[in-house]
Design a protein around this nucleic acid. Structure first.
Length: 139
DNA sequence: GCCAACGTTGGC
DNA sequence: GCCAACGTTGGC
């Protein structure tokens, strides 16, 4: 099982939008970046991810689960772009802000901290545990 | 709102 | 195949 992080601007697609979809989940579409797409192609059903709000909030706000593996992105005819489906699992008890991640030495090598622009990124198991801890949430 | 970082495009 | 120009993202 792998861990990931999904980044979204709350004004475009927020945690509330995601939870409103319930068990049915939703496509993580609109990704037009090869690295992010390649990460999605590696995902398996049951993999877990953090849901991160960029821009104003800059915090990990919830946990999601992959419910469909990579398939063509329905929002484009361009066959270069694939996406997965994810569903909300649970919110973080306390949102884990970017500031907290930067301040924690255990997270100094996190992609979120070092490559701010990558919208779908891998998370190491130890980073996953650290963030769950900071967020007061059991994985 | 600005700007740095990064990715992509297109001319050569 | 290189590299300059451009566009986009996201933190500040």
């Amino acid at each position: 099982m792998q861990y990931w992080l999904f980044k979204s601007e709350p004004s475009t697609w927020s945690w509330d939008d995601q939870t409103a979809k319930g068990e049915a989940g939703e496509e993580w579409d609109g990704v037009r970046n090869y690295q992010a797409r390649n990460n999605m192609r590696l995902m398996k059903i049951g993999d877990r991810g953090f849901f991160y709000h960029s821009q104003s909030e800059k915090a990990i706000v919830g946990i999601v689960e992959v419910i469909a593996e990579s398939h063509p992105d329905s929002t484009t005819d361009d066959d270069r772009w694939d996406c997965v489906d994810i569903k909300a699992v649970k919110p973080m008890k306390t949102p884990v802000t970017l500031e907290m991640c930067k301040a924690d030495p255990r997270l100094s090598e996190m992609v979120l901290v070092n490559n701010t622009r990558l919208s779908v990124q891998p998370v190491r198991p130890e980073e996953w545990r650290t963030i769950c801890d900071l967020g007061g949430t059991k994985a």
